[in-house]
Design a binder for these strands. Sequence first.
DNA 1: GAGAGGTATTATGAATTCAAAATGCAGCCA
DNA 2: TGGCTGCATTTTGAATTCATAATACCTCTC
Lengths: 227, 227
Amino acid sequence: MSKIQQRSLYLDVADRVRELIEQGDLAPGERISEKHLCERFGVSRTPLREALKVLASEGLVELLPNRGARVVRLTLKMVKDTYDLMGALEGLSGELACQNISDEGIRAIRTLHDEMLRHYRERNLPDYFRVNQRIHESILAASANEVLQETYSNLSQRVKRVRYSKKMTDDFWGNAVQDHEHMILALEARDGRRLGQILRDHLCNKLEVASLAGVVEDETALEVATS
Amino acid sequence: MSKIQQRSLYLDVADRVRELIEQGDLAPGERISEKHLCERFGVSRTPLREALKVLASEGLVELLPNRGARVVRLTLKMVKDTYDLMGALEGLSGELACQNISDEGIRAIRTLHDEMLRHYRERNLPDYFRVNQRIHESILAASANEVLQETYSNLSQRVKRVRYSKKMTDDFWGNAVQDHEHMILALEARDGRRLGQILRDHLCNKLEVASLAGVVEDETALEVATS
DNA sequence: GAGAGGTATTATGAATTCAAAATGCAGCCA
DNA sequence: TGGCTGCATTTTGAATTCATAATACCTCTC
């Protein structure tokens, strides 16, 4: 029995373009040729153009009237602003999670937390990242606020292209783990205010280790120096 | 000399549909007939459909595959969730504003504040609301975070349809003005933490006086009782 | 050889057309 | 009478077509 409800074509196209942007197959600032992508996806221009409009309203591409679309170039300021925002949202998610999460939910996150610690002790960065992300997702889900989840994931998508330094220093890593220790304690105490604050600060630290080279505008490095 | 840079048609259409929704000309849950709107706007289906896709990604309409579009029905939970989110964003805007605003900017807001107080004393609700909104907009602008501004205005648009009770009690009004007194003091002291907190709580109060009848799902009133 | 101007080509914007799905309605049967 | 089946109509989804703006290229002039 196959699925009855078929998704619209433009949604699939949008997903695929998002993927290309995230993977870097469509470079920042790169002109998006409608014809080229149509042939690549095997669809006509109509659904592709609809998809581009959606992606534009998501902030992933920009549409220049009569001159096509291009992948938005992230500036350092945009990334920083987005992180500030995501920090506030993470903070809210922590507060709400403490109000709404079940005891079982807390135990599940504790399990993830312990698993993450194992990966940390073994210096297994990929698995650490994976479990780390699941913890944050779990807290977000526990907030039981769908508008928040949707907004967060949109912002997250925008900066997904930014890759983090492979050579994350032990210092930063240690601090992050320390943050998580405090998080789980606050969560188990259902101290929303505290959990929120930790989550917010935690994200700010994350920004610091972000290696923005390549994805971010070069001229922006200049901005940093001058500001 | 006319403007050289013409906006795309779908943007104009999107604006007009947004207006119709905000004004209530398109009722919540109402089916949106492509043909009807095309004739009304004098455009073909292509730009209208592009506009609908954008509006869907903004959360104003929902697209049912093969069955057209409809104006989203706001549930009480959605409105509440959105306000929680907007509260967090207002809080952030306050913190950032204190960091970034100029002394002149503070003086400008103080002027607005005093003007608002005059309208309050004269019980001039429309002008009070207008100036009130300008204050919040000024703080948001002073945050110097465009991603924040854009996100806030999107969320704001979603719940714009919700009309506030004409019979706002003197109590609530007095409290709101009191909040504003604290706000301007925190701003003048550049106490971001405090301003943020006030703005957040201020918005929560606003929700309480919201008269949700008509725009919000009826079944939702039930949800309130059961939760 | 460099630059300006004009034409050809290409890409985008929007309308139209074609195909497929959903809706409405009439007739049929229990 | 009530509900189901099947056909006609309407509506949506997607491709195609047409018009217009942008780009590239070529020529002509200095």
